[in-house]
Design a protein around this nucleic acid. Structure first.
Length: 463
RNA sequence: GGCGGCGUGGCCGAGUGGUUAGGCAGGGGCCUGCAAAGCCCCGUACUCCGGUUCGAAUCCGGACGCCGCCUCCA
């Protein structure tokens, strides 16, 4: 049984599934108006890891994550770049998927675009207007929050205690400052759709509720996103579902934010590092390892130092993969436990790691166990028990693979010149001609190889 | 102001009322012709002040500092 923290209850509880054996999860995706940053990287990694783990455990996961392709910021961007919103979306969505691929984040089962669901949104808003749950004012249609039972469930505090009124514009016309836009009337030149209640575009909260219910159906299992979406975004999604008489998510789960110098990384603060930059300057697996080493609900500092730290840790994992010539797992495919076998120490490791991951995805504990196992696998091999060592090493590889972290055993293609130098060095070493052996090693290093001796002779690999 | 959370060794970052988190960096050793890789050992931390307890970094109270949400945000 998988247990997960629920943001509404404020405690870890069993993940109760609508359909036994199947997980339906919705993860709020990005608005594609800019380069994806480390914050986006964290939520995609966290929920990718969750999805992969559920899958590994034998659950059939339907993972839906949207692309918001119509929003104020996209319009602002198109004006700034003097091109259409469609072009802006095409550019930044392309960069989004490129970044996801680099991070090894598996593609969602479905990645709906908001603009493909506008008719359904119009239908929903019309129904709200018919029932007087929504009302029209000069700049659009708003939901009357007072008509929603339990509004404030995710805010976690009495509604009258929420500080409101910081924003002056349009507030006067709203029945309550908490009421939110379902539909925004078009301004000249903006992309718009024709609706019975006016020409305009949907509000962000309406996009997500329509897509999640549309693709996953009522009473779906798990709704996820960054902690900063809890209120008001998720509250407002839920409000619409409830107001429409639908049953919304059974569980809510939120990941902690990426911090930079003690502050949240965000577009509005402008303190972000793009994933594109990260992929160019580091091994993207390092970020996944960093995410795995902290709990998904904790804030996480990501700096060049912590990334470099993780890269060095990764080198030890890769060394294990080389030593045991382990196959490269994960990547595009989601590993499933039943496709792998776990023997002796490996079976014990799987049991331990499985227990901590099933309990609210305690990945830091899992990683600690895996690093302990790594030392044990090497020691066991040093002691000459090759088969036990191999069973353990394979389990480590499979479990990291289950979490989407591929260990790389590839040495790189060895050209004939380098191969010749290797052969000559082994000859020199055989003849105990250390000067020549060292000279040849230096030549290999100059050619960019890392040179290591092993029981079978000189091994070279790319750093 | 309301609600929520945090303050851990050089750095990152877990965790539990008493027993080693883990990683990185650093020191020592083994192995190696040397180096690399690998293995072993070592730093003995928990913001401060009270309290509960045989025993608290872990529970309670208070102080200080910090962060998130309440406004677009993953």
């Amino acid at each position: 049984m998988i247990r997960l923290y629920d943001s509404v209850d404020g405690e870890v509880r069993d993940l109760s599934l609508r359909d036994p054996g199947r997980v339906s999860m919705y993860v709020c995706g990005p608005t594609v108006d800019n380069l994806p940053h480390l914050g986006h990287g964290r939520f995609t990694l966290v929920w990718d890891i969750a999805r992969r783990w559920f899958t590994f455990r034998g659950l059939d996961v339907n993972y839906v994550s949207n692309i918001t392709d119509i929003e104020d910021k996209i319009i602002a961007r198109s004006l700034e770049e003097d091109r259409s919103t469609a072009e802006v979306v095409a550019t930044y969505e392309g960069l989004w998927w490129q970044a996801m691929d680099a991070l090894g984040v598996a593609r969602p089962s479905a990645a709906p675009h908001a603009t493909d669901y506008v008719p359904e949104m119009i239908e929903l808003i019309s129904a709200f207007l018919d029932d007087d749950i929504a009302y029209t004012i000069s700049d659009g249609v708003y939901l009357d929050v007072s008509r929603v039972p339990d509004y404030g469930l995710l805010a976690g505090q009495p509604l009258d205690s929420l500080r409101v009124g910081d924003r002056v514009e349009a507030v006067d016309e709203k029945r309550s400052p908490l009421d939110f836009a379902l539909w925004k009337n078009a301004k000249p030149g903006e992309p718009s759709w024709l609706a019975p209640f006016g020409e305009g575009r949907p509000g962000w909260h309406t996009e997500c509720v329509v897509m999640s219910l549309g693709l996953l159906g009522d009473d779906f299992d798990l709704h996820c996103g960054g902690l900063d979406l809890k209120f008001p975004h998720h509250e407002n999604e839920r409000a619409q579902a409830v107001a429409a008489g639908r049953v919304f998510a059974r569980h809510w789960s939120h990941n902690g934010l990426v911090m930079v110098g003690g502050e949240k990384m965000s577009k509005s603060l402008g303190n972000f590092t793009s994933l594109t930059h990260l992929a160019e300057t580091s091994d993207p697996r390092a970020y996944r390892l960093l995410v795995l080493r902290s709990h998904y609900r904790s804030p996480l500092e990501v700096t060049t130092d912590t990334i470099a730290d993780a890269e060095r840790a990764l080198a030890r994992l890769d060394a294990l993969a080389r030593r045991f010539e382990l196959p490269v797992l994960a990547g595009d495919t989601l590993e499933v436990a039943s496709n792998h076998r776990f023997a002796d120490d490996g079976a014990a490791l799987y049991a331990e790691v499985g227990a901590v991951l099933d309990d609210d995805l305690k990945t830091p504990l899992a990683v600690a166990l895996l690093f302990d196992a790594l030392a044990a696998a090497n020691s066991t091999a040093d002691a000459g028990d090759a088969s036990r060592a191999r069973n353990l090493a394979e389990a480590i590889n499979v479990l990291f693979g289950a979490l989407g972290l591929s260990l790389h055993s590839r040495e790189g293609d060895v050209d004939s010149v380098s191969a010749d130098l290797v052969a000559r060095r082994d000859d020199a070493r055989g003849a105990k001609d250390w000067a020549e052996a060292d000279r040849l090693r230096n030549e290999l290093v100059t050619l960019g190889w890392v040179v290591e001796d092993s029981s079978t002779g000189t091994l070279i690999r790319r750093p």
